[in-house]
Design a protein around this nucleic acid. Structure first.
Ligand code: FES
Ligand code: FES
Lengths: 131, 131
DNA sequence: TTTATATACGATTAAATTTGTCGTATATAA
DNA sequence: TTATATACGACAAATTTAATCGTATATAAA
């Protein structure tokens, strides 16, 4: 219930490390070894962050990842959605029909809760939660 | 990721129904049939709400549940915690040791995010999200 | 007093989601 | 040419959530 995934947890760890070592080029193997994170999962996670320009990737030997300038300004909502898709406490929030078709009496509360959470995450940046 | 459970969904449906029919005594069978919810799950869910005095229960034939006066003032956080235990995006929030022992670099961000969410839920009542 | 129907509660099974692994391709510095 | 890094997709294991089953207890009505 309302838990974040390991993917997001691992991404946070990686991002924090890259931010604290701004100019270093860090490989997945290094991060994986330092923090005890399965290499393949972390790799795929960083690939997603790279394609969203949150981090920069460099291929080949001596390659790895660096923090991008965009990183601090990124909102929590964008960060989560890059990794996990739309932020919603129920799937129906982003769908046309609702799960209960005829007799749904929770559309209003579900939307209110979700709006509040999205509003919260849209107004918190990765920089905000780091200090 | 950050989803609510069916238990909470079912509880919301039941609560909304009981609030809209303040004086009626509604049985689990009725609710279950009206909204297409598995009876046993809904029963256990309402039992939890009853022991927290969110709803009142009446045994025997013609028995059922009623909304209590406490219901509207209940915060979202209390409501969630009655059904699902402590609100936390990661288990370590409520534990002494953290999951990464030596090399945890995400304690601050995890706590900030969780504090924000708990603050949000503590300041929203069931009445707030219903209108 | 008997019977039917409701809540109460624990144990177990089924389904869905999340987490982790494996295999292969491509880029590039040495 | 070779070793090492990112990139990406398919699959398997593990965990969590959802649903079912079984039994006990209370109580209104016949
Ligand atoms: S079930 Fe989500 S709005 Fe009806
Ligand atoms: S893992 Fe949660 S605080 Fe370290």
């Amino acid at each position: 219930m309302l838990k974040i995934t390991k993917k997001v947890e691992y991404a946070l760890i990686a991002i924090r490390h890259l931010q604290e070592n701004q100019d270093a080029l860090v490989s997945v193997s290094d991060l994986s070894a330092s923090y005890g994170i399965p290499k393949e999962i972390l790799a795929k996670t960083l690939q997603k962050l790279a394609s969203a320009n949150i981090v920069k990737s460099y291929k080949g030997p001596t390659g790895g990842y660096k923090a991008s300038k965009k990183i601090a300004k990124t909102t929590l909502n964008d960060f989560f959605e890059i990794l996990e898709g739309p932020t919603a406490i129920m799937d129906c929030y982003f769908q046309d029909g609702c799960d209960h078709l005829n007799s749904c009496n929770i559309r209003t509360p579900i939307n209110k809760i979700n709006d509040s959470i999205r509003n919260l995450f849209n107004n918190l940046t990765l920089a905000d939660i780091s200090q």
